[in-house]
Every structure is written in C-alpha cells, then in structure tokens.
C-alpha cells in the first residue's frame, strides 16, 4: 500500500480540485476515481481562505485526506506563509510545495524550492515538493528533510505526458526507497499507466480530468490506468527486443511442408 509520511493510502491516484464545471461534478469525479487524496489551492481557488468556507466544507464532505498546495507562490517567503495559512485553514501539516520560477511555464524555481522545503520541514511540515526530474535537486530536497518527491513529467497543464521517460527511469533507479509521485503534465490515462509501469508510486493530476468533456468518466479511466500500470510493474514487464520471438515453437512446421 502507498505510504506517504506514515499514512497508508489505498489509492495511488491523487486528484486536484480546481477547474471542474461544478462542485457536484467534482464530487462525482472524485468518487469515480476512487482517489484517497485531493489537493486544494488556498490561493487560487479560495481567495486566500477568505470567505471560501463553503467550498472547503464541500471538500470536507468528500471525507478524504487533503493535500493543500502553495500554487501561485513565486518566492520562498510567499510559499512558507501560504503553507502556514494552509495548516491553519485545513488542519493538516501536509503541504504540496510549489515555488514557481516562471509565470508562463510554471516551471519550479528549484533553488527557492529547496530553501522553502528546509524551512517547512524544520517547522514540522510533511513536505511534498513539486520539482523537476533533476537528480541533484532531488538529493538536496531529501537533505532538506523531504521524504516524498513529486517530479513533473511535462509542464503543468500541458497534457504532454512523459516527455523524458529516461530521466524518470533514472530517478526511480536512483531513489528506490523514496515515494515518487509524478505531478503535472499527464494528459491521458495511458500516460499515467506508463509512469506507473516505470515503477512510480503514484500520480497527481487535475486538468486532464477537470477539463475533460466528461470529468467523471475521465476520472474513472485514470483510476483504472493507474491500477493497471501498478499491477503491470509488480508483475514484471517483458523487456522489448530487436528481433521477433515466436510464442509457439516453429520446429514442427517443416514436417508438413
């Protein structure tokens, strides 16, 4: 079972709560996905927590683990302040840490990320850093106290899927015992299945479900893809080869010719 900071979770899909057509559809999509963790943006979705209690109570009624995020923060100070506010508002020390380095691509500022992670880990937060697939940055995040890593596979909202599977594979190989969650860039269930086949522990996504024509159907599809990818990884995948290997012996055929 997936273990994140000592919490055992039945599902390996984490789902964002932004941009759904309505809270009712969000709730149905969450149920269809069978996720056990939803992310919530204090800044982007709830005006910094002012007056958004109704939306929060709708999220609470889902009765799932909540992972607040620091979406929209561009500096260490903003991210730390937002994390502390989120701890008050949502009553959890879990924080998905985003420190954005580029407004346009939403690429993480990895220097600020490491610094903010260190501050928050020292303050008792369970930090889920949104990072790149860079191994040295990952090492620094672990040194700062993180026990989960969340590398992107493509820019946020791009729906490109894993653009550098080699980097993801090497990350998995490099950190065999750290829970690795692919965050951002997944567009299709097949993308989710692919990174799960690489041995990643879970995936986090939002736009691909929220902006689908039928978010409920898409949430269900992603839930199945994550399960399929995980089971395939555990079952041992056949490695590709360059030549054909028939599945039945051909020796006997010549006899009839």
């Amino acid at each position: 079972m997936l273990d994140l900071y000592g919490t055992k979770l039945p599902s390996r899909l984490l789902l964002g709560t932004a941009q759904y057509p309505s809270p009712a559809i969000l709730a149905d999509a969450v149920n269809a996905s069978r996720t056990s963790v939803v992310t919530v943006s204090l800044r982007r979705e709830m005006a910094g927590g002012r007056g958004g209690e109704k939306f929060w109570s709708l999220i609470q009624s889902l009765r799932l683990r909540v992972l607040p995020n620091t979406a929209g923060c561009h500096s260490v100070k903003e991210a730390v302040t937002t994390a502390k506010m989120a701890r008050e508002v949502f009553g959890t020390n879990w924080i998905k840490l985003e420190v954005i380095g580029n407004h346009d691509t939403l690429q993480p500022d990895v220097f600020g990320l490491v610094e903010a992670a260190r501050i928050l880990c020292e303050d008792g937060f369970a930090v889920f850093p949104y990072t790149t697939d860079d191994l040295v940055v990952a090492e620094r995040l672990l040194a700062a106290g993180c026990r989960v890593l969340m590398p992107w596979c493509a820019p946020i909202g791009s729906a490109l899927g894993p653009v550098n599977a080699t980097a993801l594979r090497s990350m998995r190989g490099h950190f065999p015992d750290i829970p690795l969650i692919v965050d951002a860039g997944l567009g299709r269930p097949s993308h989710a299945a692919l990174v799960m086949e690489l041995g990643f522990d879970a995936v986090l996504l939002n736009t691909a479900v929220a902006k689908a024509a039928d978010p409920i159907g898409m949430a269900r599809a992603f839930g199945k893809a994550v399960d399929a990818g995980r089971e395939a990884y555990r079952s041992g995948l056949l490695e590709p080869r360059d030549v054909a290997v028939p599945s039945t012996p051909t020796i006997g055929r010549a006899v009839f010719q």
């Binding site: 979705e45 005006a47 007056g51 958004g52």
Partner: peptide
C-alpha cells in the same frame, strides 16, 4: 471565478 464569499476590492492579480 473564485470560490469565495468575500466582496472585498478587486485583487491585483
């Protein structure tokens, strides 16, 4: 479109 009851002034963002 912001999930909030707050009718405070328009934010800079």
């Amino acid at each position: 479109m912001i999930e909030s009851l707050s009718s405070g002034p328009v934010t800079a963002r």
